[in-house]
Design a protein around this nucleic acid. Sequence first.
DNA 1: AGCTGGCCCTGAAGGC
DNA 2: TGCCTTCAGGGCCAGC
Length: 289
Amino acid sequence: MPELPEVEVVRSGLDRWVTGRVIGTAAVLHPRAVRRHLAGAADFTGRLAGRTVTGTRRRGKYLWLPLDDGTALLAHLGMSGQLLVGEPDRPDERHLRVRATFADGGADVRFVDQRTFGHLLVAELVPDAFGGTVPEPVAHIAADPLEDAFDDEAFFRALRRRRTGVKRALLDQSLISGVGNIYADEALWRARLHWARPTETLTRAEVTRLLAAVREVMAAALAAGGTSFDSLYVNVDGESGYFDRSLDAYGRRDLPCGRCGTPIRRDVFMNRSSFSCPTCQPRPRRARA
DNA sequence: AGCTGGCCCTGAAGGC
DNA sequence: TGCCTTCAGGGCCAGC
């Protein structure tokens, strides 16, 4: 389940392979992979043919390749999406959805996605709220916590205005982008906050602690090449990261908390798992799922 | 307007 | 053995 660190590993891995190269042809092998490209698969491939890739960019969990005509190839990996680089004559992967070849005949780029929650599209680059440009579908999301543009004070004020639980807020990409279920649980564990804590009761010191925890856990995951909890996330060479060995809360049901030894508990809300330490992260009297 | 829950999708794993 | 159920979850959107 790729979150910010995993997407960044993919972006940086892709960079030297694609920057400056001219796209030859693209092929869509599964229509669902381009379902958000509303003009359809033929328009999608038509917009890529002959374009030069000018770089690689990322915000939160979105990754894009700016093209030489003011558009960009945008990718969201969803739960199981992979962008793989390799020799064009290798066999098709089982869940190959989109293939892009290059005019020089060298290594191609493939979008492989078992669960089909991921997608690709081509969109115009538009100005964002921070003086840069982003693909149009990315314009509505917040900066991610590793960007200079992220405003800690504005995040604190937004949390105080909300009437929801802190984990739900962490997963809301319009407040802070790039955080998914794994890093939300890890950051809350590090900051000793329960997932159901009402955001309007958070103090400035707690939000500062939480943001520091988000940044620390993401930086550590990045350094380890990302997390691969269920082996579906891989870098452009098809290799898994090993940060899952360093997880303190996520997936550790009934295992001892690394700080106090209390068994980690698993709760279900938002139809997903939340792992926390009952001692370090006591449930607030007033809880908001 | 802000917030919540349902839905999309596939394959692995567990239960009977 | 084999079938059925459960689980993984990001983002969109309907509806309250």
